[in-house]
């Protein structure tokens, strides 16, 4: 008993400190590092860039395509109205700067400089020029974390825009992803455009995702295709966040 008492007298401070440090780390883990990301956002605020000029849009070809797309969209809208299809009301997106990348090497995440104060909630969809980028997985007051679709753990239901065959997309590192098809022999070719599928629960349908780079129909258990993502997930600067369905 006496030796125990002496040991305690000598080591209580150390034990208490170790307990304190571990519980602080545990709290940081349970709160998803919210405090750290808030401080990060505060510290990096002076270095965050202003919105880029509309140089991209100056390109005449892009402008022409945009006009055509708007024309087709409005036609589509009218046809849907004629059919009696009730469309979901269009919501305005929240523009957010990308202030940080993933905090380790195995996850493809980005940190945005807007949070719940700007109206972002968990599960919101993130897009950039080029199409779908990812999904918001955690939000603090002034920052939010996005799991990119190029992450190996994210799954997106997709459909081939031309032939309407469906599959599941799994991220690979960089700007590539693999698609596994449900059908044994899907109609898919190199260069086909890929969009999110209408049966996807996490993502709204019809968002552009990428293009097919190569097809491997003999892959087991399901035919696979490698696709190149159309959004530049490695060089994101500004993104637009939309509510999910």
């Amino acid at each position: 008993m006496y030796t125990l008492r002496r040991w305690w007298d000598r080591n209580w401070l150390q034990l208490g400190l170790v307990g304190l440090v571990i519980s602080a780390a545990w709290i940081a883990k349970q709160t998803q590092g919210a405090a750290i990301f808030e401080i990060y956002q505060l510290v990096t605020r002076p270095f965050q860039s202003n919105p880029p000029k509309q140089e991209v849009l100056a390109d005449a070809k892009t402008l022409e395509l945009q006009v055509r797309l708007e024309e087709i969209q409005s036609q589509n809208q009218k046809l849907r109205e004629l059919l009696g299809y009730v469309s979901a009301n269009q919501t305005k997106g929240i523009v957010a700067p990308v202030v940080g990348r993933s905090a380790d090497h195995w996850w493809q995440q980005v940190t945005l400089g807007r949070g719940s104060q700007a109206g972002i909630k968990e599960g919101y969809i993130v897009t950039s020029p080029g199409g779908l980028v990812g999904r918001v997985i955690s939000v603090t007051k002034n920052s939010s974390r996005v799991l990119l679709i190029s992450d190996a753990s994210s799954r997106v239901g997709i459909t081939i825009s031309r032939s309407r065959y469906m599959g599941i997309m799994r991220g690979q590192s960089g700007d590539k992803a693999t698609v596994q098809f449900f059908e044994r022999v899907p109609d898919v070719r190199k260069g086909d455009a890929i969009a999110t599928s209408s049966v996807s629960e996490l993502f709204p349908s019809g968002l552009p995702v990428g293009r097919v780079e190569s097809v491997n129909l003999s892959q087991s258990p399901a035919p696979e295709a490698v696709i190149v993502l159309s959004a530049p997930t490695s060089y994101l600067e500004w993104v637009v966040v939309y509510p999910s369905n």
Binding site: I22, A25, W26, K29, T31, G33, I36, F37, S102, Q109
Partner: peptide, 17 residues
Amino acid sequence: AIAGLTLGLIQDGMTAP
């Protein structure tokens, strides 16, 4: 070990557990 454990837990919070 304690240092690694502590910082690892914090990093878990910042990425994925």
